[in-house]
Design a binder for these strands. Structure first.
Lengths: 209, 209
DNA sequence: GCCCCGTTTACACGATCGTTTGAAACAGGG
DNA sequence: CCCTGTTTCAAACGATCGTGTAAACGGGGC
């Protein structure tokens, strides 16, 4: 192991990531974060200039590896010439659930989207709009006789299954008496990917609009 | 129209419902709620004894019509002898999105699940566990050669698509340049129900576990 | 030795939080 | 009209919020 300790700045980001994901943005004070990191509460003003900037830093820090992993898997698919739907969906879904332990970043994003929708939308657009567009393009290519609008709806539904698995895991665990554990990522994916593949492949119902 | 004005107590609940759904629990102060209802902030202490009790009241008040509508539609199905999957899923999904304008109750529940997971789980169990079990039973009957565990996973995914449609609607609207509007409930359902039907009907992938 | 400068600390500021209080305003029956 | 119980109000409570400030710390270059 490398003996380098994380810098004070990093310790703050890590502590904030954990607490924000657990209790939301408004539910955590700068004093809480500083205490979790073992530092003085004024240091977050020193390093980031304020609580909001710390949040932005947490968001960027967490989004980066997830984006990178998605890109890596896409490149892998390209190299192997694979274009089938299951592989594509897996390449999108798996990095989101593996990015950090038990998807605490997805949880953070869900909370932000509800609590601070203005801050959230700008952060999301900044960090994810390009990746999403890329995946929608590929989905359209994998499903050539589905309308692009319909694909976008289904992409939207897929995001829902992803976020909810990270946000509300205790619900399914309760209902199933512990038989379904959303923290077991491999088991979750084994059910989620076929579910999504079938959903994406569904015949379009004739809608009036 | 009936000339009865809503009672002061009801006005507070309605105002709280709106604000909680918009900004979360921690993001709204009792003074905000009182102002929205046009009353003094002390009245929420007078009527409910505290902010948390007001939240519980809001939750119960919002959950009731949604539950009732689901039951009504199920009874309708029973009466007509309908047991097919699309009708069943529609009976579960539609009341959630129609219960109040643009699913603000789903939004509230998502926020609570993330912000105050302890309060939330008790409220959810109190208000929804029976309904969920009922639907899972019916899903198992409609899909007799799928394992119950798998059905529960897919039920979990369905909840995700529901909640996310209410929580993060702006995302899909942005990505699609406004072509997909999650507030258009009919259009949303026209895409969502076939998606879910296909997902529920999917072949099970052979999982090791 | 000394100073310098990036870091960390303790502390105070004004604002706002949830809640409580006590009295004013209100209603209706005697 | 007064009495009684309910509802509303302004004001204040102690606690905690995010932030700013100024002093103390500590290791490398002179």
């Amino acid at each position: 192991m490398d003996g380098d300790q994380p810098s004070s700045r990093d310790r703050l980001i890590i502590a904030a990531q954990r607490l924000f994901a657990r209790h939301g943005y408004n539910g955590v004070s700068v004093r809480d974060i500083a205490a979790e990191a073992g530092m003085n509460s004024a240091s977050i003003g020193y390093y980031f200039g304020g609580k909001e900037n710390l949040l932005a830093e947490v968001y960027r820090r967490s989004a980066a590896p997830m984006k990178a992993e998605r890109r890596r898997r896409l490149a892998e698919l390209d190299e192997a010439g694979i274009t089938d739907l299951p592989a594509l969906i897996d390449a999108f879904v798996r990095p989101a659930l593996l990015a950090d332990e038990s998807g605490s970043f997805l949880r953070l994003r869900t909370i932000l989207s509800a609590e601070n929708s203005d801050i959230f939308s700008s952060l999301t657009a900044e960090n994810f709009d390009d990746t999403s567009a890329e995946f929608i393009d590929r989905l359209c290519r994998a499903l050539p006789n589905r309308a692009r609008t319909e694909i976008m709806w289904r992409f939207h539904f897929m995001l829902g299954t992803l976020y909810y698995s990270a946000t509300g895991p205790q619900r399914i665990a309760t209902i199933s008496d512990g038989q379904c554990d959303p923290h077991d990522v491999d088991r979750l994916l084994a059910s989620l990917v076929p579910f999504l593949v079938a959903g994406f492949s569904a015949q379009e119902k004739d809608v009036l609009s």
